[in-house]
Design a protein around this nucleic acid. Structure first.
Lengths: 149, 149
DNA sequence: ATTAATACTTGCAAAATACAAATAATAATT
DNA sequence: AATTATTATTTGTATTTTGCAAGTATTAAT
């Protein structure tokens, strides 16, 4: 098998560039990490601060501050968990949902443009492959979980 | 077509975790960005400082300092370009090549483990798809080049 | 009732980043 | 040939990001 790492390196770097471009959607201009946080809060079910930090592989103290800044921007809301008062549940505000949606849309537009350079069959293949890859990564023990740092 | 962005987000995040884990290879313990710099210097042909900074999408003043730190670690070498004395050519030292190689190997090992969760046919498909994707991204005008920031 | 563990926050210090300005060399213009 | 403009890189300085250590508040275990 050829150099898989190289293929991945190129792919993820380019996707990173794509991501960078995409965060000034919907009139807001937020950072790349902030967009990841919005994404994650939006996709988890009533997540706690710790759960989101964990998912993103971010130090919890750093994340605590990141959340604060998003609350200041009125994009994220922090609600005390009635079952355990140590815990805060994160959710997106209406504004936050709007921004997350705008970014999602823009990213999908960009990806759509990328995919337009492939034919229908190639597009299907690529989508299916990424799914396979995600499943394989989920099965892997070595990788793909929060790093120790 | 389903939510492509979501598939990409998951994939790249996981690959990011993989990358994070992988930088303490060969006895050295370097940062993720440093590993990307080593990779890029190794894969370009006698690149100048600006060229590598450009490829990585890093501000040139930041990159100048990053190079300095890698020189201090004796992983990178800076040679004046004889044709244009404003320019410095970057290259890896013997030690730098060793570290870059160790990281490459470790990444490939990790990816090998990930791929072991797929059958031969799926593996082939995934590899081919990533190649297709990289080609499509290269063709795209919207994305995948250095962002303005 | 006391101790241990957990979820989150804050103090502080270090690291990463970027804009503006400086330096040094080459290219373009007069 | 002299002057001006452009380019490649570095440094000054200020901002932002980050993380460890320690703190608070709450729940779980003994």
């Amino acid at each position: 098998m050829e150099n898989v790492r190289e293929l991945f390196q190129i792919m993820t770097r380019r996707f990173g560039f794509l991501n960078k471009n995409c965060c000034s959607a919907g009139g807001f201009d937020i950072s790349l990490v902030q967009s990841h946080i919005l994404y994650e809060i939006d996709h988890q079910h009533h997540p706690s601060i710790q759960q989101v930090a964990e998912a993103l592989g971010t130090d919890i103290t750093t994340f605590s501050r990141q959340v604060q800044s998003l609350i200041k921007l009125n994009l994220v809301k922090k609600t005390p968990d009635p079952d355990d008062r140590r815990v805060y549940i994160l959710s997106l505000t209406t504004e936050g949902k709007y921004v997350a949606g705008a970014i999602e849309q823009q990213m999908n537009d960009y990806l759509g443009e990328v995919f337009s350079h492939m034919n229908e069959f190639e597009q299907e293949t690529v989508i299916r492959s990424i799914k396979l890859l995600n499943e394989a990564m989920a099965k892997s023990s070595l990788c793909c979980t929060t790093p120790p740092g």
